[in-house]
Simulated scan of single mutants.
Amino acid sequence: MKQSTLLKIAAGAAAAAIGGAIVYSRATRPPVINPAVPSPQKPVDLTRYLGTWYELARHENRYQKGLDACTAEYSLRGDGEIRIVNRGRVWPDGEVHEVRGRAIVADEDMGAKLRVSFFGPLYTGDYWVLDHGEEYEWAIVGEPEGRFLWVLAREPKLETAEFEAILKRVEQLGYDRWALRRTRHA
């Protein structure tokens, strides 16, 4: 077979693989829950944001399907990037799932937009701290496409009134609070 024919076959196979990945990716993405995600308005002090966060609620996604007792740990790496360790457990006392990633601050002025990667340098995603408590006791995190949302806190449970206030803020940001899945913690 001629070299030009082999190159055409290889190019066609690569295009089909990329096209198949795009179709697969679009077919498995969660629905948009907020078509008009606001840009973060409050700056984030990274040193205060680092540490352990407990997930209180989320828009269900395939990466966390069936997991509860979810936590996210953020720490600074030696190279200035952020180390991320996310954990969740199959409820109530099943297998622990862990994924490690890294992030960089994408907007130096506000510090509220990060670029995260859990699957190597070829896939990165946006991580926006849409709002947070004055003492960094809670945070609402999303991304610009409006497909994902997480409600995080420094404690696994909050007083009912405090959690209700955060859910009202979720609604003010344009999200349907009833689309959130509450995360169980032991």
Rank of each mutant, 00 (worst) to 15 (best):
108 E>I: 14
178 W>R: 14
133 G>W: 05
111 G>A: 06
117 S>W: 04
129 V>K: 12
130 L>S: 01
165 A>Y: 00
85 V>Q: 07
126 D>E: 14
46 L>C: 06
111 G>T: 01
105 V>E: 14
111 G>M: 05
27 A>N: 06
174 G>Y: 01
152 L>F: 05
56 L>A: 04
54 Y>P: 04
34 N>V: 10
131 D>E: 09
176 D>K: 13
146 G>P: 07
96 V>S: 07
162 E>G: 03
46 L>G: 04
127 Y>F: 07
1 M>V: 12
146 G>A: 11
141 V>Y: 07
85 V>A: 09
36 A>K: 10
138 W>M: 12
128 W>V: 15
186 A>R: 13
183 T>L: 04
5 T>Y: 04
129 V>G: 15
65 K>C: 05
39 S>Q: 08
132 H>D: 08
113 K>E: 05
136 Y>E: 11
123 Y>S: 15
64 Q>N: 09
20 G>A: 03
142 G>D: 12
4 S>D: 10
77 R>W: 00
149 L>G: 09
18 I>A: 12
65 K>A: 15
45 D>I: 07
136 Y>T: 14
24 Y>H: 10
30 P>Y: 12
79 D>S: 09
118 F>G: 06
13 A>L: 15
90 V>E: 13
77 R>C: 03
156 P>E: 05
150 W>V: 01
68 D>F: 00
113 K>M: 07
119 F>N: 14
32 V>D: 09
25 S>M: 05
162 E>K: 08
50 L>T: 03
166 I>A: 01
59 H>W: 06
90 V>L: 10
42 K>A: 03
150 W>P: 00
14 A>T: 03
119 F>Y: 09
11 A>I: 01
124 T>K: 08
58 R>W: 03
18 I>H: 07
165 A>I: 01
143 E>P: 12
3 Q>V: 08
24 Y>S: 07
39 S>D: 07
73 E>W: 02
156 P>H: 07
66 G>L: 01
36 A>R: 10
128 W>P: 06
46 L>I: 11
186 A>K: 12
58 R>V: 09
60 E>H: 03
130 L>G: 01
26 R>L: 14
147 R>C: 13
46 L>D: 03
137 E>L: 07
7 L>S: 04
172 Q>R: 15
108 E>Y: 00
175 Y>D: 05
48 R>V: 07
29 R>L: 15
49 Y>I: 05
182 R>D: 07
37 V>S: 13
155 E>S: 11
12 G>C: 14
106 A>R: 12
81 E>W: 01
176 D>V: 11
13 A>N: 11
143 E>V: 08
142 G>Q: 10
89 R>M: 09
56 L>T: 02
110 M>D: 11
19 G>N: 06
59 H>T: 10
35 P>A: 08
30 P>T: 15
42 K>Q: 08
140 I>Q: 03
69 A>D: 10
178 W>V: 11
63 Y>F: 15
45 D>A: 12
143 E>G: 15
17 A>W: 06
162 E>H: 04
47 T>S: 12
6 L>S: 07
41 Q>H: 10
64 Q>K: 05
53 W>T: 02
99 V>N: 08
102 R>I: 06
38 P>T: 06
29 R>V: 13
164 E>Q: 11
59 H>K: 15
84 I>A: 05
177 R>N: 10
129 V>T: 14
158 L>N: 01
61 N>D: 14
11 A>K: 03
53 W>D: 03
86 N>P: 03
139 A>E: 01
